[in-house]
């Protein structure tokens, strides 16, 4: 099969590659770019471990082909921390113990990143709805929800200081 030349921006840097059309975006991210923070937890688009931000929207990167990301801007968990400083959502997950094994965490954080931009001051119910496409097999979600609530606060106070 002819390969396709793709060019996209990943975590702020331009990336070019030749890919087979059947290569999934998540495999491109992990195996070609070596960004292994994006996980794979299922074959059926259920778990959300592979969540990334594509052109501003949270999507499941196991359910898109890498060719489809041509010309787009991609943000993965590796792109969140700036100058050695954790992103407020990462900080919040750490401080509030929003994880146990950590497998679901990158997906949870990327979904939160998208969601908190749309809804900076969410209710608990809105948070639970927002992460309904991200499965966690360890925590029971209570600490994750607390972490996202705390992240919303951190992000708002950061906005105020600006």
């Amino acid at each position: 099969m002819p390969k396709h030349h793709i060019s996209l921006v990943v975590n702020g840097k331009k990336v070019e590659a030749d890919v087979e059309p059947r290569m999934l975006l998540v495999h491109f991210i992990r195996d070609v770019l070596g960004l292994t923070g994006t996980h794979v937890g299922c074959d059926t688009t259920n778990c959300g471990a592979c969540t990334v931000i594509l052109d501003g929207k949270a999507v499941k990167s196991c359910s898109l082909f890498a060719v489809q990301a041509d010309g787009k801007e991609l943000l993965t968990i590796e792109g969140l921390a700036k100058d050695g400083q954790l992103h407020p959502i990462q900080q919040a997950f750490w401080e509030k113990h929003g994880l146990q094994c950590g497998y679901c965490t990158p997906g949870m954080i990327m979904t939160s990143y998208w969601f908190l931009r749309k809804n900076p001051n969410p209710t608990e119910e809105e948070i639970r709805n927002a992460i309904s496409g991200n499965l966690c097999r360890c925590t029971g979600y209570v600490k994750i929800v607390e972490a996202i609530q705390y992240a919303a606060k951190l992000m708002q106070s950061k906005e105020l200081k600006k």
Binding site: T45, A58, N129, S132, N134
Partner: peptide, 9 residues
Amino acid sequence: IADPLVRNM
């Protein structure tokens, strides 16, 4: 329908 991430696509 599905979840918010699936609905984004």
